[in-house]
């Protein structure tokens, strides 16, 4: 029997959908059977990020309302063997499904798949309650901003209140150069406040923008730092012990040369 992981953050725009798409793809690359659910009804995005938008016929609301069978709504990703998407409805609202229905759906899916990843909408209202209803575990995504950390903290509190204890943390879009200059919150500041297990640190990476626009998860590209970080996260999820990535190595050749000659401060 599989596991249902909800990916949530509270604040919008911190990279929940990107994270879901990349972790889902990575898990599939590791040979797992994975389904990613877009729980952001009315503002669906996951299909776009995965490049599967043009294949949607049925969506999650159709499944819940019995318009189609669950299998009919699942879209198979041709690039990643074993990855499936259950898309959200774009023309409905969050209230179109209830937490009980979501729970039933997740239970059904985890019988068939190793991992069920739920992409949670921003906010703490009905959409959030739906998304977490069927989950066994939660992954909280934050960025190194005070507002994002504050919202993540609130979300952790709400998860704990819903019996989803010990969520794990992904810090997204960190820029080590800015952290070093003291212009960005450092990792310790965040783990101090949130006090939950760190699952991964994802560096800020231009390639994510490109990959999102192309609809191709960054994990496919070996050159992408973020892609590599997401692959590591996936390996940690399946229980491998992967050390945290050295984020300092992307210093250019010239910079290293300059350092060698003492030109850098």
């Amino acid at each position: 029997m599989g596991e249902v992981l909800v990916i949530t953050s509270g604040k919008g725009g911190v990279g929940k959908t990107t994270t879901t798409a990349n972790i889902g793809s990575s898990l599939a690359m590791l040979g797992k059977k994975v389904v990613v659910i877009d729980a952001d009804i009315g503002l669906r995005n996951l299909d776009v990020v995965l490049g599967l938008e043009n294949r949607i016929v049925y969506d999650i609301v159709d499944v819940v309302e019995g318009v189609c069978r669950l299998k009919q709504a699942l879209i198979r990703d041709k690039r990643f063997e074993g990855l499936y998407l259950l898309p959200a409805a774009q023309t409905k609202e969050k209230t179109a499904i209830s937490p009980e229905q979501m729970q039933k759906l997740c239970n059904e899916l985890k019988e068939m798949y190793d991992y069920v990843l739920v992409d949670c909408p921003a906010g703490i209202e009905q959409g959030f309650k739906n998304a977490i209803a069927g989950a066994n575990k939660a992954i909280v995504v934050t960025t190194p901003e005070i507002s994002a950390v504050r919202d993540a903290d609130r979300i952790i509190g709400l998860l704990e209140a819903s019996e989803l204890r010990n969520p794990s943390l992904i810090i997204n879009r960190i820029r080590i150069d800015m952290v070093k200059k003291g212009d960005m919150m450092n990792i310790e500041d965040m783990t101090d406040i949130l006090a939950i297990d760190l699952l991964g640190i994802v560096p800020d990476d231009e390639y994510i923008v490109i990959s999102t626009n192309k609809g191709e998860p960054a994990v496919k590209d070996d050159a992408s730092m973020a892609g590599r970080a997401f692959r590591n996260i996936a390996r940690r999820i399946i229980g491998e012990d992967v050390p945290f990535m050295e984020l300092d190595i992307n210093e250019g050749f010239m910079a290293r040369l300059a350092k060698l000659f003492g030109l850098n401060k």
């Binding site: 609130r154 952790i156 709400l158």
Partner: peptide, 23 residues
């Protein structure tokens, strides 16, 4: 730990065996 969004009101002394986070 009291996380963002939680509010404790008590007509007496309060001892928290954890952190009290911003918010």
């Amino acid at each position: 730990t009291l996380r963002s969004g939680s509010k404790i009101e008590f007509k007496g002394n309060v001892v928290v065996m954890g952190d009290v986070n911003p918010g």
